[in-house]
Amino acid sequence: MHSNFNLRLQHLEDNIRQDQDLLKEYEDSLRYEDDPRRQIRYKREIKQLRESANGYQKEYDELRVQITGESNVQIQNVAMQLQQMNTRLDRLSAGQKAIYENINHLHQGLLTRYNAGEQNIIAAITEQLDQSQMVMISTVLDAIETDQVTDGEMQLILQGIQQNITKLQQNGTALPPSQTALVEVINTPELDFKHRLKIAIPLIPFILDYEGELELGTGIDLKAALQALMMRFKGE
């Protein structure tokens, strides 16, 4: 009986230690991760670790009942490890919630810049963006809306976006439906170019991703143009 008790306790301790190591990996990764898809995966993994921790607690409680009137250093260590694990899980969950709330706030703020007919198309695009990409888009839109960008610069950026899209289509790259719908609006001749550019801006992160993969080489350095614009707008 005592041997079986010690074996169960040892297994419990080993499992908690392994999950603690995993938890540390997630903590380190999430500290620098702003890709929403990876954040969702980490959130799922953290949820599984929470379920494991609940199972460990149940196992610990069952073993604790078997200790009557004697001090067991090993079970005290398990109790301490469980407490540490739950504390770290709580901290990670709180951090994830804060990240989600901030991204949601940025997302809603972006949508208010567009009219009701455009918001559904823009929403489908911006839901796929991470925090830094949405900040970049917001900054560029701020610069455009406060007339910090010349007409020539706006036309150059819009031209760069359109040329990149054309190059993608020539390469046989199928754009997702949400991006295709946005491209149709951008190419509407009835709209003035400033409005078309505002609608096109959320496509830039995806174009830059494609640019890295396909080496589009359209002759317009879209990334450099945007960085220069953002630095000037921020007064750097």
Rank of each mutant, 00 (worst) to 15 (best):
I99F: 15
Y100W: 12
Y100A: 04
N102G: 00
I103T: 10
I103V: 13
I103E: 10
N104V: 02
H105D: 03
H105E: 01
H105S: 06
L106S: 11
L106A: 04
H107Q: 11
H107F: 07
Q108N: 12
G109F: 02
G109H: 01
L110D: 00
L110S: 00
L110R: 00
L110E: 06
L110Y: 04
L110P: 01
L111A: 02
L111F: 05
L111M: 11
T112W: 02
R113P: 10
R113H: 06
R113W: 03
R113N: 12
R113C: 03
Y114V: 05
Y114N: 06
N115M: 15
A116Y: 12
A116Q: 15
A116D: 13
G117H: 13
G117Y: 09
G117D: 15
G117M: 10
E118M: 14
E118H: 11
Q119M: 08
Q119I: 04
N120A: 14
N120E: 15
N120W: 14
I121N: 12
I122N: 09
A124F: 09
I125W: 04
I125M: 10
I125D: 14
T126V: 13
T126L: 09
E127S: 12
E127R: 15
E127W: 05
E127Q: 14
E127A: 12
Q128A: 09
Q128S: 13
Q128I: 02
L129N: 09
L129S: 06
Q131H: 14
Q131N: 12
Q131M: 15
S132M: 03
S132C: 06
S132T: 04
Q133I: 01
Q133R: 13
Q133K: 05
Q133M: 08
M134E: 06
M134Y: 02
M134G: 08
V135S: 13
V135K: 14
I137V: 11
I137R: 02
I137E: 11
I137F: 09
I137T: 00
S138A: 10
S138W: 01
S138K: 13
T139Q: 15
T139P: 07
V140A: 09
V140E: 03
V140Q: 04
L141T: 01
L141I: 02
D142Q: 05
D142V: 00
A143M: 00
I144V: 15
I144L: 09
E145T: 00
E145A: 08
T146D: 08
T146P: 07
Q148F: 09
Q148V: 02
Q148W: 07
V149L: 06
V149G: 01
T150Y: 00
T150I: 00
D151T: 10
E153K: 03
E153F: 06
E153M: 00
M154K: 07
M154F: 02
Q155T: 09
Q155I: 13
L156E: 12
L156G: 03
L156R: 09
I157G: 05
I157P: 08
I157A: 04
L158M: 02
Q159C: 11
Q159Y: 07
G160A: 15
G160M: 04
G160D: 07
I161V: 09
I161A: 04
I161R: 04
